[in-house]
């Protein structure tokens, strides 16, 4: 139908899958990334605004957008913003991710 799309998030008319009307209870990490978004974008910190956040999600690209869950996209988008704004470095984040995964083992 509408062939024109403004990005991977512009999905009107694109799929025919049935709607799964069941809901999962949000996991702790999902609520925490929601909370982190709210805090980082609040009036006190204002590290970014909602439109920058939306652009970061859209800029993940169709492959990442379509293969990650809703809050996974939030995590990756906020990561990209924090690195771009040099609030955290890519290296320190990579090292910490390794530490987190090691700790879990």
């Amino acid at each position: 139908m509408s062939a024109k799309r403004i990005g991977p998030h512009d999905v009107a008319g694109s799929v025919v899958d049935p709607v799964d009307t069941t809901a999962h209870e949000l996991a702790g990490w999902e609520k925490r990334i929601d909370a982190l978004y709210k805090l980082l974008a609040d009036e006190k910190r204002c590290l970014f605004v909602v439109d920058e956040f939306r652009l970061a999600i859209e800029s993940l690209g169709p492959d990442v957008y379509n293969t990650h869950s809703y809050y996974e996209r939030w995590v990756l988008a906020i990561r990209d913003i924090l690195i771009k704004k040099q609030i955290i470095t890519s290296d320190e984040l990579s090292q910490r991710v390794v530490d987190v995964l090691d700790r879990e083992v």
């Binding site: 996991a27 990561r79 609030i87 530490d99 987190v100 879990e104």
Partner: peptide, 21 residues
């Protein structure tokens, strides 16, 4: 709610970002 199962790569990024922030 507790996070079920092993931590995924994306969940590890969430935890790492939160700790660094």
């Amino acid at each position: 709610p507790a996070d079920q199962g092993p931590v995924t790569q994306v969940q590890a990024i969430q935890i790492a970002m939160q700790e660094l922030l």
